[in-house]
Amino acid sequence: MANTHVAVIDYGMGNLHSVAKALEHVGARHVELTSDPQIILAADRVVLPGVGAIRDCVSELRQLGLDEVVRQVATQKPLLGVCVGMQMLLEHSEENGGVDGLGLFPGKVKFFGNELQEEDGTRLKVPHMGWNQVKQTLDHPLWHRIEQDARFYFVHSYYGVPTRQTQLAGRCHYGVDIAAALAQDNVFATQFHPEKSHTNGLQLLQNFLAWDGRW
């Protein structure tokens, strides 16, 4: 794990440095922020971060030709998507009037709405910002040593709805049920920010460094 080469995809959007520092904190010795397809494809593991508007994220990714690189990585080695990085892996988002994603996971990204509330009528703020418990729905290596219903940090106004429940690795509730994590083959993606989630998030990143893509 100590010598693993992690490429954090730099497409001009995303919380790159905080992700990189968190990976280094849990033991990664070679973390590279890069938009070079050759470096990304040569890495042992790849992280796709993302913050902000999905339209801008997808546009920049495609302009650099990195959408196809992500698809290729998804067939070859461990890939971790984070926040908008997870949303981009779905087929379509309602954000910005409708944006097509990369389609690695069948499903869509929906807006919480301006009148979000719990069943008892409690009004909820949008964006969903803060700590929330995550129910693990798959027995996955990235949950190793993380307790059921552990708390992670979220910041988002849109949430993923996967078509296949077999790809739902974790969920939480904020007015509606949210896909907190998705998994398929060697791809794992989180709506929450592991790099901002203290002990539980750092454990997940450490698990990612040790993961060979099989489970």
Rank of each mutant, 00 (worst) to 15 (best):
M1E: 06
N3K: 02
H5G: 11
H5S: 07
H5D: 12
V6R: 03
V8A: 12
I9N: 06
I9G: 15
N15F: 10
N15M: 06
N15H: 14
V19E: 10
V19F: 09
A20M: 10
G27C: 00
A28R: 02
A28F: 02
H30C: 01
H30G: 03
H30W: 04
V31S: 06
V31E: 05
V31D: 10
E32L: 14
T34K: 04
I39N: 15
I39Q: 14
I40T: 14
L41P: 02
L41I: 01
A42F: 12
D44S: 11
D44T: 11
D44G: 12
V47C: 05
L48I: 03
P49K: 08
G50M: 04
G50K: 03
G50C: 05
G52M: 13
G52L: 08
G52Q: 13
C57M: 08
S59L: 13
E60R: 04
L61A: 08
L61T: 10
L61N: 13
Q63R: 11
Q63A: 07
Q63P: 14
L64E: 13
G65M: 09
D67M: 15
D67W: 11
V69G: 10
V70N: 06
V70C: 07
V73T: 13
A74K: 00
T75P: 09
T75Y: 05
Q87E: 00
Q87W: 00
Q87D: 02
L89F: 07
L90A: 02
E91Y: 05
N96F: 08
G98F: 15
V99I: 12
G101E: 01
L102Q: 15
G103S: 04
G103W: 00
G103F: 01
L104K: 06
L104H: 09
P106M: 01
G107N: 03
F111G: 15
G113E: 04
G113I: 03
E115A: 01
E115G: 06
E115D: 05
E115K: 01
L116A: 02
E119A: 10
G121I: 09
K125F: 12
V126Y: 04
H128S: 07
M129W: 12
G130I: 00
G130H: 00
N132A: 05
Q133I: 00
Q133T: 03
K135H: 06
Q136P: 03
T137C: 13
L138C: 11
L138Y: 10
H140Q: 05
P141Q: 05
L142D: 06
H144Q: 12
H144C: 06
E147V: 14
E147F: 09
Q148W: 12
Q148A: 15
A150R: 06
A150V: 03
A150W: 02
R151S: 15
R151L: 07
G160Y: 06
P162S: 02
T163W: 03
T163M: 00
R164M: 11
R164Q: 14
Q165N: 08
T166G: 10
L168T: 14
A169K: 12
A169Q: 07
H173Y: 09
Y174K: 00
G175D: 07
V176F: 10
D177E: 04
I178F: 04
A181F: 06
L182K: 02
D185P: 01
V187W: 01
V187Q: 06
F188G: 01
F188I: 01
A189Q: 09
A189Y: 02
A189W: 04
A189F: 01
F192P: 15
F192T: 06
E195C: 13
K196N: 07
S197K: 03
L202M: 09
L205A: 09
Q206S: 10
N207K: 02
F208A: 07
D212A: 03
